[in-house]
C-alpha cells in the first residue's frame, strides 16, 4: 500500500503514456477508419490524463472538451456520412516507407537531442509553478489566464487573428460554389 502511495503518480503516468502511444500506433495501423478515429480519441483522453497528473487542470479539461468532444465528433460524423469502407482494400504501407522510416528516426533523434540538452529549471518541474501567480497560489485557470493576458498578450491576439482569418476564409470558400 505504501508503494502505491509513493509511486502512484509515476504509475499513472506510465499507464497514460503507454495508452497514448499504443492508441496513436493504432490510429495509423488500423484498416478501419472508424477504429482509427476511436484510437485517436483514446489517445487524446490519455494525453488529458497526463495533463491532470501535471496539475495543468485547465489544459486537461480543454483537451477533453475541444479534441474529445468537438473535433473527434466531427471526424466521426464525416467518416460515417461518407461511409468509408473502401479503405479495407487499400495498401497501408506505400512505396515511400524507407524514406518515412528514415525521417522518423531522424526526427526522434532530433527530439531526444533537444530534450537531453535542455536544462529544465526547477520552476518548470514543480506543479506549484502551474497554479500560482508571483508565488501566490490561486489555481490553474487563473495562472494560465494571467500568463496569457499579461505576459503573452500579443502572441495570443495574433494567434486568434489567424484563426479568425481561417474562419472567414472557410466561409468565403463555402459561399463560392
Amino acid at each position: 500500500m505504501d508503494f502505491l502511495l509513493v509511486n502512484g503518480t509515476a504509475l499513472l503516468f506510465y499507464l497514460f503514456a503507454a495508452l497514448a502511444v499504443l492508441s496513436a500506433i493504432l490510429v495509423v495501423s488500423s484498416r478501419n477508419p472508424l477504429h482509427s478515429a476511436f484510437a485517436l480519441l483514446v489517445s487524446f483522453l490519455a494525453v488529458a490524463g497526463l495533463f491532470f497528473l501535471r496539475h495543468a487542470e485547465f489544459l486537461a479539461v480543454v483537451q477533453i472538451f475541444v479534441y474529445g468532444g468537438g473535433i473527434m465528433v466531427l471526424f466521426l460524423f464525416v467518416i460515417m456520412l461518407v461511409n468509408l469502407h473502401r479503405l479495407q482494400d487499400a495498401k497501408i504501407y506505400g512505396m515511400q516507407w524507407p524514406a518515412a522510416l528514415l525521417l522518423a528516426v531522424l526526427f526522434i533523434g532530433l527530439v531526444s537531442w533537444v530534450v537531453a540538452g535542455v536544462q529544465f529549471s526547477p520552476a518548470n518541474l514543480s506543479p506549484a509553478a502551474l497554479v500560482s501567480i508571483d508565488g501566490e497560489v490561486v489555481g490553474n485557470v487563473e495562472a494560465v489566464a494571467w500568463q496569457l493576458y499579461q505576459q503573452y498578450l500579443l502572441p495570443f491576439e495574433i494567434a486568434s487573428l489567424f484563426l479568425l482569418v481561417a474562419m472567414i476564409g472557410a466561409v468565403v470558400l463555402a459561399r463560392t460554389e
Binding site: 487542470e57 485547465f58 479539461v61 472538451f65 474529445g68 468532444g69 465528433v73 489555481g139 490553474n140 485557470v141
Partner: peptide, 17 residues
C-alpha cells in the same frame, strides 16, 4: 474542483459518442 464548470461541459460533450 477548481475547474468544476469546465469539467461538466467537457464530460457532457463525451456523451454524444
Amino acid at each position: 474542483v477548481n475547474v468544476g464548470l469546465l469539467l461538466v461541459v467537457a464530460i457532457a460533450s463525451i456523451g454524444v459518442y
